[in-house]
Amino acid sequence: MKSFRAATAASLLAACAGQTASAATGNVLFNGTITATCTITINSNGTMTVSANLQSLSSHNAGGSAGSAQVDTTGGVTLSVDPVTSTTVPASDTTATTWTPTFATSGAQTIAETGTATALTVPGTSTVAVNLDGTKSGSNRFSAGNYQATVTLRCE
């Protein structure tokens, strides 16, 4: 009797051995959308110095320094500077000044110095140098005192 049971179990096992487990497979899809992002981090403001002929007050002049900012982006954005509208000048300066802001980038994307809006197409971190030139024409000169100007660096 015992040997009969063993033989039955063995035959059942043998019958099942050739069967594969019934399994189904499916693909799980993952989608992700990254919209344009942009972060501006101002590292330092700039400094302007006056030229020998007193007709240029600029961060390009000797002793002056550009402002510095870091831009982190996915790309697909535009970097620009606005015309300068907000300035503080000494009371003794009553003549007109033409302000010209420019920027240049290095790092993930290199942009030569420009005042024109430029597309940032390369994702990553770029360092932006922001310069500002103030010029006077004719016989007009910069005078002693404190000058202050605000440059708007825009990423959109």
Partner: peptide, 16 residues
């Protein structure tokens, strides 16, 4: 303007 009261200030502007 993260660092105001300096000679040449930079205003950071992010526009959507």
């Amino acid at each position: 303007i993260p660092f105001p009261s300096e000679q040449t200030q930079i205003r950071a502007q992010i526009c959507g």
